[in-house]
Design a protein around this nucleic acid. Sequence first.
DNA 1: TTGACATATCGGAAAATCTCGATATATAAT
DNA 2: ATTATATATCGAGATTTTCCGATATGTCAA
Lengths: 104, 104
Amino acid sequence: MEPIDVFKALSNETRLNILRWLKEPEKHFPKQGAHLPKEVSYKGGVCVGDIQEKAKVSQSTVSSYLNMMQKAGLLESVRHGQWTYYRRNDLFIEQLAEYLKTDI
Amino acid sequence: MEPIDVFKALSNETRLNILRWLKEPEKHFPKQGAHLPKEVSYKGGVCVGDIQEKAKVSQSTVSSYLNMMQKAGLLESVRHGQWTYYRRNDLFIEQLAEYLKTDI
DNA sequence: TTGACATATCGGAAAATCTCGATATATAAT
DNA sequence: ATTATATATCGAGATTTTCCGATATGTCAA
């Protein structure tokens, strides 16, 4: 874990909101998953376009935000066809809270 | 708590180190406390000058870093005479870890 | 294979942050 | 009062971050 990169990724309201939204994807992205084939169902993953619409920033901005959060460890992604689905890395976030308590 | 301000304060190696050093002040600031009168002994507080020497940044930089971390909630300070002593706000850091688990 | 759509990457202008030296303020000692 | 010391504040140049539009890449459908 690179704590500086993680804290930088968390230092932005939009990115923080994305993390929060992805905690309850069904609630915040009701129409998501339309394109996701059942057999590869990606639990809780939301595609970039849906996140962009909700976040109200440009397509390039949301793409780089998501990439940044993934590199930091906060998110995971899979691609299915032309869609990329992002979801939280809950284990990592747990570890981050633990890291705060012990290493900071 | 303003999470953005807290994460910004944590997004810098020197500031992160200051927090870590203040976890074991006796260890990292062996000669600290020289000016602190016994009757107002400030458990674990370290003066700005000692922190600056260890952090190897300018006096103004360390002063604004400490101020920023205090505003964010990570540190507390008391002034005794011409010295300002800073120490960790451990309760706040605990709450931050909790906040991460529940709100992020 | 062409066209349409989703996402990623690039290049850059504006804003924010970093970090310093200079200076101001507060307190203590003479 | 004056001087010395500790810390805070100010102003600014360098660097980084923000966020966009334009463009490239990848994938699917016709």
